[in-house]
Design a protein around this nucleic acid. Structure first.
Lengths: 196, 196
DNA sequence: TCCCTTGTCTAGCGCTGCTAGGATCTCTGT
DNA sequence: ACAGAGATCCTAGCAGCGCTAGACAAGGGA
């Protein structure tokens, strides 16, 4: 009994190890450097072991992405709790989203560009995904004012997503980063002040 | 002399053929289906012929992207000329940008996601790239109002880019597409009316 | 007519994701 | 204590990828 438990524990540890190494490798050298051979070498097992944990390479990327969603959710909730009032929360969350994307470019890619088979916004979505979306969409919808919150949230999210991706491609001026966030918040609020 | 001319002409035609087929294949089956072997087969030449026209596969993607920039520039200028006043131009151009992205997803990918070695916003940028950027940035800056036009343009462009990419991933509700554009324009204008 | 340039193809290298089949090692039942 | 069963892991290999070296053929100039 206990032996089997130990095995399952070790197996779970190796599972997490694969995810961690894949993420580290991707963040250090880009996703194109994450090959099954290199990954196998780093975890000190042969390639087929990877396939006893994941159906294919995409599933590994998806697992990394899921970890990213959990972290994003935590970080967004974190900053939201540190300020008061919907406008301040909105501003803080938007800033945290941009910071997350800038700090973890490979992870962000896995989450929003590569792992396209992750079920977005559906009832069978993984918890981490739902929570991350809620942590972002909640504060945004909060400042929608008279606007229909759903399209409003989509527009704000799109703007944030666009800022993250274009920024990483070096297509936005780095010295304007702060101003862009201020500007986005300001315009999206439509001139409304704090209304808590 | 004339023989050499014929050869150069045929060579140029084949060059364009490669770009056209690559684009068609990408748009029909996605970029992952665009392999050098398949491409060679479609143009009815062997693989090495591709490399007598382009340094590598990325260069082929870049060539497709460049064609995309030329088309985008043309389309943006087109719609801009059909309306009057900076606000109307801004609205039309933003809508055309979204329509372009939705109509040519693979092409859009080549332009903004894959061909990262294309020199963006630099003096040695290809003409098509500069023109496309100008056709977008001009009308945007026109409605910046008192705002510094550069970060303002970056924010609007990011929002449009985000809308295109998230929409394609099926992450935005299709029935809100029109409302999103209206909302973006409305908010970005900051309540300003036409001021021509 | 012969040579030489130019253009093209065949074949192959090292890499990729992925898997079949065999070896080894561990636990279980007698 | 030991043999058999089962789980676990690795070696070796497949097909396909981007890319290239070297052979080959076709055409124009001397």
């Amino acid at each position: 009994m206990s032996i089997q438990e130990r095995r399952e524990r070790e197996r779970a540890e190796r599972h997490q190890l694969i995810i961690r190494i894949a993420r580290e490798l991707a963040e250090a050298e880009g996703w194109e450097a994450v090959t099954t051979r290199r990954l196998a070498e780093r975890i000190e097992y042969s390639q087929p072991v990877l396939y006893s944990h994941f159906a294919n390479k995409d599933a590994i990327v998806a697992a990394v992405a899921l970890e990213g969603f959990a972290e994003l959710a935590a970080q967004l909730r974190d900053v939201a709790h540190k300020v008061d009032g919907p406008v301040a929360v909105f501003t803080a969350v938007a800033g945290a989203y941009l910071a997350f994307g800038a700090a973890n470019p490979a992870l962000y890619d896995a989450m929003f560009t590569m792992a396209s088979e992750l079920p977005f916004g559906r009832p069978d979505s993984p918890t981490a995904l739902k929570e991350a979306f809620a942590a972002l969409a909640g504060p945004i919808a909060e400042v929608a004012g008279g606007e229909d919150p759903e399209p409003f949230t989509e527009v704000v999210w799109s703007a944030l997503h666009g800022l993250v991706t274009l920024d990483r491609g070096g297509r936005l001026r780095p010295d304007f980063a702060e101003r862009r966030l201020e500007l986005l918040v300001e315009r999206m609020l439509g001139g409304a002040t704090d209304e808590d």
